[in-house]
Design a protein around this nucleic acid. Sequence first.
DNA 1: GCCGTTTTCGGCCCGACTGTTTTCAGTCG
Length: 576
Amino acid sequence: MKNREIADLFDQIADILELLGENTFKVASYHKASRVVGDLTEDVAALSQEGKLRDLPGIGESIASKIEEYLKTGTMARYQELAAEVPGGVVEMMHVPGLGPKTAGLFWKKAEVKSIADLQTAIEEGRLVGLPGIGEKKVENIKKGLATYLAGQSRILLGKALPIAEEIAVLLGKLKGVHEAIAAGSLRRRRETIGDIDILVSSTRGKEIVDAFVALPMVREVLAAGETKGSARVEGGFQIDVRVVPPESFGAALLYFTGSKAHNIRVRELAIAKKLKLNEYGLFRGEKPVAGKTEQEVYDVLGLAWMPPEIREDRGEVDAALAGQIPELVDVGDIRCDLQMHSTASDGGASIEEMAKTCQELGYSYMAITDHSQSLKIAHGLTPERLGEQRKEIDALNAKLGGENFRILAGVEVDILGEGKLDLPDEALAELDFVIASIHTGMTQDAATITKRITTAMRNPHVHGIAHPTGRVIGQREPYAVDFEEMVRVAKETGTALEINAYPERLDLNDVHARAARDAGIKLLIDTDAHAPDQLHFMRYGVFTARRGWVRKEDVLNTLPLNEFLAWTTGRRKGG
DNA sequence: GCCGTTTTCGGCCCGACTGTTTTCAGTCG
């Protein structure tokens, strides 16, 4: 699948065009095309063959022909031409914070700076100060940006950022004169990783709020503290920006600071079409404010249904909102169970009883214990005999804990071995209430091999679902080379569910894949894969990912009451 | 380069901040 390569080329073209001073809208067109192609779950080659490239938003004649050219020849002439004009290192320099296309071009042409390494040397030798429009402060700023860039501006996992942001928002919300305090930005959209944390506060007392913020106990270093904006580094190294806006602008500001940028652009275009202007202070007709207090108010005037922040990515939500067709997304409160977790029997840190008690506290009505299977020696995986013993323990616990109101299901996370063979015999699997299969070995196999393994496992009638279907670990491990479309096709054919693993490092399926699976009519499971009781609280991250994938309650099996869920598991085994 | 209940040509989101400037360019979100 060449989607990623093509998307990257379009970003490169956009960067070079920007450096060369091309029309900014042309530059934006290539960036948009990159995003659209990069977000596709279908193979762009298949779309090309079906003649559907131009149906994609932002893909017109010129870009479609470049995609076709690349698919046919493996190169893109326009890119080759452009790349020959500008050294790659100069393009890379544009990604240093504080250093944009104009300055990168200037350094290249007037100071022979052609790479990040050259840049570092030029700064040290003081060769940059004195160039047109370049003073001491600008170079100092670029030097700081370079340090950030070289440190690898790693993004923070949502699972790490959200608890801290929430804690600070609660503290700010309690201050005198504060109406509301909400974390905005990609955090509010629940992206899997976050760049920086923006907290928006509704109040007329800017200075007091900012001063109170930088005096919070978790603040380690104050970076700025002005009238309406404060910036600080907190324990854990996160940078947090707090912005204070008056209540009459809070909705418009929340919309603006929540983004995404692409979403904001679409919404502003609609405002212009209605002869209005939208900015972070409100929606205006001429000078006159017509909305701004709440997001709802702004969307209403524009004829849009309110959109959950998770879907504000310019992936069709604005058109859906215009048509009044925003789906009712699954919510944490809809979840009735957790169907993937481990106990001390394999590599978990707590007993089944401890896990069950936490599940009860979370308000679930059932759960499944899914320890690893025998071949995973390092995790002390279970043999059929040990699974039999565990079943007895579960039966006893059910009698002790639940009665009618709570039930522990006996399950397993069975390893998919070579060629799709499962790590337990069918007779052992048949004894269990719930079977989820997954890959823990041979993760670097080629697409054909690994896809065949997974689809073969799906065809086993005892397998209800596939856990962490793509195997990626955020920032640590690339997904398996699995052919996602084929996996979805066989999931549909066999009635196998796919998991959205809620573990913050996994979130697998991701948002885009979850959307594609849902669109294909696949049933989803949202599981924590908890190895300890506190990890059962990760459920919400899986739900956020599902919501980002436009997933509704009816798409998710663990929103079902127990009897309906069991009807599904037994139906699945009969091949239904 | 894309796109069309204003348009097939002429638009294309908006403002703040910073630094280097005497009125603005560049960068960012």
